[in-house]
Each structure stands twice: as C-alpha cells, then as structure tokens.
C-alpha cells in the first residue's frame, strides 16, 4: 500500500462516507482507491469536473452531516481555496489532503513544501484558520488522517493533512486502525437533514450585518484559541542535551531523523523538533528550547516558509539559519548533515 492508498483507507476507517476529487499527480492513488472502496461501505464517490466542484460537493455533503474528504496536489489545492474559505465561514468540518508538489504554477510533480504559507496562513480569503497536520511517515499519515476527522468534527473546522509526493508514493509496513462506525459518532444537530419536528437549519457564511459578522467571527476566533491551547502536537528527538536543533516537518523530518543518528556518531549533539500541527504551530516548545541551544536550523523543501514561524518562536535567543531545496529536489541526509556541520563550526 502506498502512502496515498494508506491515507485513503485511513479516511474510510475514520468513518469518511463522502469523497469528491479530481485527478492530479502525485495524489491520483487516493482518488482511485476511493473509487474502488468507498462505495463498498455505502459512501458517496464522484470524480468531479474540477477541484472547485469537488470541494463544493464536500461543502454540501459535510453540511448534510457526513464525514467528508477531498484530496489534491498543490495546483488543485489553489482551486480549492475558495471552498475552504466557505467551509471555514460556514463552520463545516471537512478533511483536505494536499499531496504537495513543486510550484508555483504547474511546477512539477516532485515532492515539495512550498504550500506551507498557503496552508497555515490562509490561502483562501477572510479571517479563518485551518488545522494543518504534517505527517512524516505513512504510519503518522494514517494516524493524522484519523485525527483530522475527529478534530474537524470537534471544532467544526476544515483540517488539512499536508503531505507530499514522497510520502504519497512510497511504501512501508503499516498497521491499520480499527474502523470507526460512523453511526456511532456524535450527532450533528446543525446538519441539513430536513426540517422535521424542528426549526429549519441553515448553513451559511453570509452575514450582511457587520455586527452579526463581527459576533460570528469573534466566536470562531475563540474556538481557534481553544485549538491553540489544546491541540498543538510535535515530536522531539534527542533534544535534551542538544546544542543544535533541526526543525523540519513532513518528509524532511524523517530524513532528518537519519541525520541525527549520523551527526551523533560524529560527536555533534544534534536534536530534532518535528512540528506535527503546522497550525497551530508549536511556538512554546521551540521558545523553551531556544535558550538551551546555540542554533536552530530549519530545513524545508521550499525557499523558507516555516522558518518564519521558527524565528517568531526563537526571536534572538538562538541563531536561526535556514537550509532549503527548491523545485522538487529532496535533500539527502548528507546534504542536511553538511548544513549542520557548517552551522556547528
């Protein structure tokens, strides 16, 4: 099972019963897996006419109360941004997988992390936030897809799993979790189910009166604050005695795990912090570590996007160099070790 197929299966096991997508490399295996498997559990599948249509089908299916997912890769995610803003504005849960590739524009189909800003800082219009989860292994991808559905329902927000082409295409042994029975999930009294014996339910992001929109948006922001308080996730490796730390997420984080072993064998006290929630970002743990170490090196497959959050956390308490590969090049363990050594000496 490839990473893409594993994420699709995890979604079904999380109780996802509606999937809408559009072909784009390197995420086609999710669409194809869903086409073959979600109807078997009574779920809805449509290969939509566009990513825009797909995300809006999600908007409808989610409003009808069903666990809903779409997936795409970077250029297609750009098209989904309209729908993501509407999902956020109408307080609808939805899971979006981005198997990211090189950009901007058509870019290429190689693994990349150039969509961090788009995912974590907006991308769509308006005052909204989206929970963004960055898996580094297929096992984490499965776990985070399951978590994504729970968080989406709990906070009524869109949640993105920000993967990349490497994780999507590769294989490694996995354990699949027990399936969730969607009929046993908490009820959604706000869903569109027909106004029988109750007042009509309305799903909308439209509030013409500025006072109303201000009130709704303020309530939503307080939900975002709860998410920041409760849901920050990250993984530390060998940080307790570290003098230098790498911060990396996704595919780069797992490559960096190998670099930690390599560096320590050469006497370099290297540690690793892998943010798992990219929003909310683990500012506090990085701030805490920043007074212990000399250097916090951010490594990304981009020109430097997450590094801005790292620098916000660290301020001037430690050096915050950046190393990135662009265009879909994946840094190898040796590449990263070279950057570590450059910053140690």
């Amino acid at each position: 099972m490839t990473g893409n197929e594993a994420m699709a299966e995890a979604a079904i096991r999380a109780g996802c019963r509606a999937y809408f997508g559009y072909p784009i490399t390197p995420q086609n295996e999710i669409l194809e897996y869903m086409a073959g498997h979600i109807p078997a559990v009574g779920g809805a599948f449509i290969q939509a006419e566009s990513e825009i249509a797909a995300i809006n089908m999600c908007y409808g299916a989610s409003a009808a109360g069903v666990r809903t997912m779409t997936s795409s890769s970077s250029p297609g995610i750009s098209l989904k941004m309209e729908g993501i803003s509407y999902l956020a504005g109408a307080d609808l849960p939805c899971v979006i997988i981005n198997v990211a590739r090189g950009g901007p524009g058509l870019g290429n189909i190689a693994p990349a992390q150039g969509d961090y800003f788009q995912a974590t800082k907006g991308g769509g219009h308006g005052d909204y936030r989206m929970i963004v989860l960055g898996p580094a292994t297929i096992a984490e991808a499965i776990e985070l897809v399951m978590l994504a559905f729970d968080l989406a329902d709990k906070y009524r927000v869109p949640v993105m799993v920000l993967s990349d082409g490497m994780l999507g295409q590769m294989m490694e042994p996995i354990m699949l979790p027990e399936p969730v029975d969607p009929t046993l999930l908490p009820a959604k009294p706000w869903a569109l189910s027909g106004a029988r014996g109750r007042d009509p339910n309305v799903v909308t992001s439209y509030f013409i009166d500025p006072g109303d929109l201000n009130r709704i948006n303020t309530q939503r922001q307080s939900r975002y604050h709860q998410i920041e308080e409760n849901e920050i996730r990250y993984r530390e490796t060998e940080t307790s005695d570290a003098t230098i730390i790498i911060v990396a997420y996704g595919a780069v984080a797992r490559i960096a795990r190998t670099v930690v072993v390599m560096a320590r064998s050469q006497g370099i006290k290297l540690g690793l912090v892998q943010p798992i929630t990219l929003w909310p970002f683990p500012y506090a743990p990085l701030r805490a570590l920043s007074s212990q170490v000399n250097t916090i090196l951010t490594v990304e497959m981009s020109a430097g996007q997450m590094v801005e959050d790292v620098r916000l956390a660290v301020a001037d308490r430690a050096k915050t160099p950046f190393y990135g590969e662009l265009g879909g090049l994946v840094p190898t363990p040796k590449d990263i070790l070279r950057e570590v050594k450059r910053n140690v000496s």
């Binding site: 490497m166 490694e172 795990r257 190998t258 670099v259 930690v260 994946v330 190898t332 040796k334």
Partner: peptide
C-alpha cells in the same frame, strides 16, 4: 526503524 527513505 528507518528515518530517511532517501539514500545518498
């Protein structure tokens, strides 16, 4: 456990 699936 395997860290990097990319090999120099």
């Amino acid at each position: 456990p395997i860290g990097s699936p990319v090999v120099d």
